[in-house]
Design a protein around this nucleic acid. Sequence first.
DNA 1: CTGAAAGCGCTTACAG
DNA 2: CTGAAAGCGCTTACAG
Lengths: 339, 339
Amino acid sequence: MVTLKDIAAEAGVSIMTVSNVINGKTAKVSEENRRKINELIEKYHYVPNLSARSLSAKSSKIIGVIIPTFDTENNIFTNPYISELFGVIEHAVRKEQYYTMVLSVKTANDITTALKNWNVDGAIFLMPHYDKIVDKIQKESRTPMVFIDSYSTNKSIMKVTLNDFKGGYIATKYLIANGHKKIAYAGSCYPDNTIMLQRLGGYKKALEEAGIPFDEQRIICANANYEGGLKAGRDISNHHYDVTAVFSAADIMAIGIMESCKLNGLIIPNDLSIIGYDNLMPSLYVSPKLTTISQNILLKGETAVELLMDSMKSEGEHIKSATLDVEIVERQSVQKYIS
Amino acid sequence: MVTLKDIAAEAGVSIMTVSNVINGKTAKVSEENRRKINELIEKYHYVPNLSARSLSAKSSKIIGVIIPTFDTENNIFTNPYISELFGVIEHAVRKEQYYTMVLSVKTANDITTALKNWNVDGAIFLMPHYDKIVDKIQKESRTPMVFIDSYSTNKSIMKVTLNDFKGGYIATKYLIANGHKKIAYAGSCYPDNTIMLQRLGGYKKALEEAGIPFDEQRIICANANYEGGLKAGRDISNHHYDVTAVFSAADIMAIGIMESCKLNGLIIPNDLSIIGYDNLMPSLYVSPKLTTISQNILLKGETAVELLMDSMKSEGEHIKSATLDVEIVERQSVQKYIS
DNA sequence: CTGAAAGCGCTTACAG
DNA sequence: CTGAAAGCGCTTACAG
């Protein structure tokens, strides 16, 4: 393997000088030496050893992307939202000349360990699963970090979130505008799942504004995935809920609901209107096409990387957060209700 | 930051001894010292610096996953097949106590550079895009590597492939068994796309065995994605092709075809039978549900990591490859053809 | 069972 | 513009 030393020897200069041209500190190097060294680098395909650089410099140029494997052995990359977001982040990180390392973790300790292990320059947390351990994570590590989708109340962390409340609000309002009064919420009801709770909050507010009394009976609690949707759809078809429309807090769940309803003879949107959340590709694949709440995943990922880079560059405390907007995308799964 | 030195000082031993207990070479350390050192490690939350280890040991414990960004700025993680495969690999790598670093590359040089940069212990190539530069890559780097979905003829590389030929064969045979004779192939036709060509080869063989003459007019060349499917479906609907069934070499393309046909008044499977390839989740979301060829992505990813680990452990040349089987999963998009 | 020495490939002050 | 020295945190022989 070719090292700085080899190049320096052949060029007849010190390794410092070679190091300088590699790092673009060319002001410090004579024209001639620069040329000679660059030629040698070309010739031997010299590539710096980043472990060595990481050790001697303070910076590793690695951004850790933290993936939770807390509760499940499931492949989280099966989730299109996570995958797409990850792809965006990887791309943005690469653009900034950093490297992304996937750090899948089980416990809070795993996180601190992984961060220290590689002396990671920054970390991005993809899921809100860490909200309860944010304080702990932060105390144990001085690495700049950005939490995506977090509703932690910790004021000293950087976050990129969505206006989930508004999402639930405009989704429900849209159903109301289409004449619906008996509207279900379908989604997770766990107190820990703050995102879903926000969306539920928006749903409640829209109801309230329209003078429709909130009815606990119309809250369908189930996992916000395909299977959960299947179950919810079955119950709706069996008239366990007295509704004409449903706001599903996740697209994939909405797709499950549609499937179940279809199986049980309900026609969507004639018998039941439905609106989803996320605007993932599959919302285009189903029939009827799913009306849904859209978020800008590209912007989300890029914002996260941007906040991180900013705080890494400026030493001072640079706590910033961003809340992104949502919008409704109208397709075919909602129909005017004629009483 | 706590280092070996700090622990050693407080324990009153040499850093070597601490290093030994950390690396589990406990046979070399007295019971008492071991206990004392472990306590200190606990107390200070000592975590080894892996850059330092990587520098002094030969091994970095990093597996590079190579992602192509050759032709496109598109987010490749938008592709469910790639995402799922990546997730499987990450999980398997982690299980082996290695770390996965995403290496997205534009050129063959990028690959060699990235591999050297981090002194990566092994690399997995996710796409067949490298077939033409396999020789170059291999010559420039002694890193063990596994190529997934590669049809490179280089005998000295490790590969994990699918029996794509068989996939095309059984798909077409299934259509024939259902009474179809006028069967289209829809997929990429680029000579570089060896995977697709294999599937096409299987299609031809099935036709031949059934005594159905191959008809160039029934080869629909288009990109194997949603947009390509849309286009193909439009042409089919407009009777540019005289067919009663189509074998689409990718699920997402098949979904596009279904969408277009629907838009143009064709009923699937009544007017047109269709079979896909991949068995991705979205094949469940469409109506009718897509009959398709299934591959075991979990097995594929795990096999790739296994081959890699084997070759990393045994110094000797350990060139192994695996070809995985495919099977048909029958759903609703194919109907018996009654002439 | 234990340790002193050398070295991995780089960067960071510092001195000229 | 250039270089000698020290050091980053670890592991690898080697010697006891």
